[in-house]
């Protein structure tokens, strides 16, 4: 199946980014396609490459970038990003900034849209 993922919450403060990642890993291992991962609301903070967590902790933005490197479309909402100081300069590799039209496309093209947030 084709799954679209919407992430509405930032990293670390809540578990949403971890749950989404675990879900996506399991979905890929079960042979599904991830049509796109769309970051909205505070979710856009997931996409800053300036993240530098302690070495014994997971690096959440790197996880997303690694999924992007596998060819999964990682999209950060431009309006939500502007509001929160996320732009191309701080964007993780293998992600792109675009509009809510992309979320619409994901919603149309996917068999399921699953939202992680708080």
């Amino acid at each position: 199946m084709k799954f679209g993922i919407l992430i509405q919450d930032g990293p670390y403060n809540h578990e949403a980014a971890d749950s989404a990642y675990n879900f996506i890993q399991a979905a890929l291992e079960r042979g599904h396609t991830i049509q796109g991962i769309f970051f909205y609301n505070d979710g856009v903070i997931n996409a800053t490459k300036l993240m530098e967590p302690p070495q014994d902790d997971r690096n959440i933005s790197k996880r997303w970038s690694d999924l992007g490197a596998k060819g999964i479309d990682i999209i950060v909402c431009v309006a939500a990003a502007k509001r929160r100081g996320i732009n191309e300069d701080v964007l993780i590799p293998n992600a792109r900034i675009s509009g809510l039209g992309q979320l619409t496309e994901i919603a149309i093209e996917s068999d399921r849209l699953i939202t992680f947030g708080s």
Partner: peptide
């Protein structure tokens, strides 16, 4: 911000 950004999403989508 959910209600407000939700509204923005409704308008665009």
């Amino acid at each position: 911000i959910y209600a407000y950004e939700g509204l923005e999403a409704i308008l665009i989508m």
